[in-house]
Design a protein around this nucleic acid. Structure first.
Lengths: 235, 235
DNA sequence: GTTCGCACGATTGTCAACAATCAGTTTCCT
DNA sequence: AGGAAACTGATTGTTGACAATCGTGCGAAC
C-alpha cells in the first residue's frame, strides 16, 4: 500500500473547500458575533492577550481580525493604545441610517425589476405574517420578520455592491436597531410602510418601490432625530 | 556627567509626522497611489518582495498595507496565492456607479440644506469655469473641475459616512472614471447636468439637488450599460 | 498636602527566522 | 509518447522573541 507516501508531511489539514483562511476568518467572525451580541460594550478595550485566550487563536491572527473589524467600522484602533469597540454617536447613527435609506431604496427598485412570481408570493407571505404579528402584539416576532423582509428584498435585488455596504452598516447599528423596533407605536407605523414596499415590488414598479422603502427608513430617521432632543435615550 | 540618565529618556526620533520613517500608513498610501496611477495593472500580481524593494518598508508593513487595500476593494488577497490588483468587471462598475449615484444624491440634498453664501459663490465659480473649459475644448481641465465640483459638494454636505464610502468607491473606479469623461460628446451632455446641480444647491432645494445629481450619474450608468454590448471597450 | 519627575508593569508594534504552500518541471512507469 | 507522482524554486503564512510605547503608582521636593 502507499501508506508511506504520507509520512513526510505532518497531517496536512486540508484547507477544505471554499477555504478563506481558517484562523483569521473564524477569529474575525467570532469576535464580530461577540461584539454584536453585546459581550463587549461600546468603548470597551479589546486586549489582544484576552482575545487570544478566549478564541484560542494566535496573536497574529487576532491582530488581523481586529484590523478587519476596524475596516468594518466595528472597532477602532489607536496606535499604541490598542483596539476599542467603536462608540457610535446618535448623529452618526442618523448618518448611517440615511445611507441605508438610499442604498436599500436602490436595492428595492432593482428588486422590483427582477422579482419572480415565486419571490412575489414569498413577499406576500411575509407581509401577511407581519400583519398577524402586529395584531397579536408579538413585537419580537415582528422584528424578526422585519429583518427577513429586508433580507429577502436584498436577495431579490441581487445588488452585490449595495448588499455588502448595507451589511456592514447594519452591523454598526446592531444595538440601536434592536431598540428602535421596540419603541411604542412603531409597528403600527411601519406595518403599512412595509406593505406598501411589498405591493410596489410585487407590481414591478421600481420607482414606487424605491419611494416606499425610502419613506419607511426616513421615518426611522425622524424617530432618531426626535431622540436628539431627549439625551436620556442614550444608555 | 550623568550619562546614564540618557538611556531611559532616549530622544524619540519623532517618526510622528510625515517623516521618511516608512510605516504601514505610508506604505499603504504610496501603494494605493501607485495602483491608481496605473503602475500596476488590474490582475497584476503584487509580490511582497518586490514591494519591499520598491517602497523600502519591511515585509510586515507591506503585508498590513495589502490587507488594508484589500479592505478598500483595491486589491484581492487569495490565501497562499498572494495579492493581485482587483479586476473590476463592467457589471461591477455599473453597480458601483449606481451606489455612487444614490450616495452623492444624498450628499447633494444635504448640501442644499447647509450651503452658505460663500459656498454658493464657489459653486457658481466652478460652474463658470466648467462652461469655459468645455467651450475651449479643454477636456482635461473639465475633468479636473468635475472632480473639484463633486468634492466641494461633499464638503458642503458634510456627510462623513457617505463621504467615506464615496471615497472608496471612487478609488475603485479611478481608472474607468478617467476614461469616461473623455468619451466623445460627454462634456456637452454633462455640463448642463452640472449646472442644474449647482442651481439647485444654490437655491437651497434639496429635492431638486438630489434629483439633478442622480440624473447626472444615471446618465453615466446609461453610458456604461451601452458599453455592455460592445465588449471591445474593456482594455 | 500637592505637584512633578521617574521608574515600572502592562500592552502593543516590529522583526527575522521558520514552516507551509503553490506553480512549473522532471522523472518514472505503462 | 502520455499521464501522474514527485521534486524544485519561489512565495506566502505563522510563530516567537524583542523593542517601543503608554498609563500608573511611588517618592522626593517644595
Amino acid at each position: 500500500m502507499s501508506a508511506e507516501k504520507n509520512l513526510t508531511g505532518v497531517r496536512r489539514s486540508r484547507p477544505r473547500g471554499t477555504a478563506d483562511g481558517k484562523d483569521k476568518a473564524t477569529a474575525r467572525d467570532e469576535l464580530r458575533t461577540a461584539i454584536l451580541a453585546g459581550e463587549y460594550m461600546p468603548g470597551e478595550r479589546l486586549v489582544e492577550a484576552q482575545l487570544i485566550e478566549r478564541f484560542g487563536v494566535s496573536r497574529f491572527n487576532i491582530r488581523l481580525a481586529l484590523q478587519d473589524l476596524a475596516g468594518e467600522g466595528l472597532v477602532e484602533i489607536q496606535r499604541n493604545r490598542g483596539a476599542h469597540v467603536r462608540k457610535i454617536s446618535l448623529a452618526e447613527t442618523i448618518e448611517i441610517t440615511q445611507v441605508r435609506m438610499v442604498l436599500e431604496g436602490l436595492v428595492a427598485a432593482q428588486a422590483a425589476d427582477r422579482v419572480t412570481e415565486a419571490e412575489a408570493s414569498e413577499l406576500d407571505e411575509i407581509g401577511l405574517l407581519m400583519r398577524r404579528a402586529v395584531e397579536a402584539g408579538e413585537f419580537r416576532r415582528y422584528s424578526d420578520l422585519n429583518q427577513r423582509l429586508h433580507g429577502l428584498i436584498r436577495k431579490i435585488g441581487a445588488h452585490a455592491t449595495a448588499d455588502r455596504l448595507i451589511g456592514t452598516l447594519r452591523a454598526q447599528l446592531a444595538r440601536h436597531q434592536f431598540m428602535l423596533s421596540l419603541l411604542p407605536g412603531r409597528p403600527a407605523v411601519s406595518l403599512p410602510q412595509h406593505e406598501r414596499i411589498i405591493t410596489a415590488i410585487r407590481d414591478r414598479d421600481p420607482a414606487a418601490a424605491e419611494t416606499a422603502m425610502r419613506e419607511h427608513i426616513a421615518s426611522v430617521v425622524e424617530v432618531l432625530r426626535s431622540l436628539e432632543d431627549t439625551p436620556a435615550a442614550h444608555g
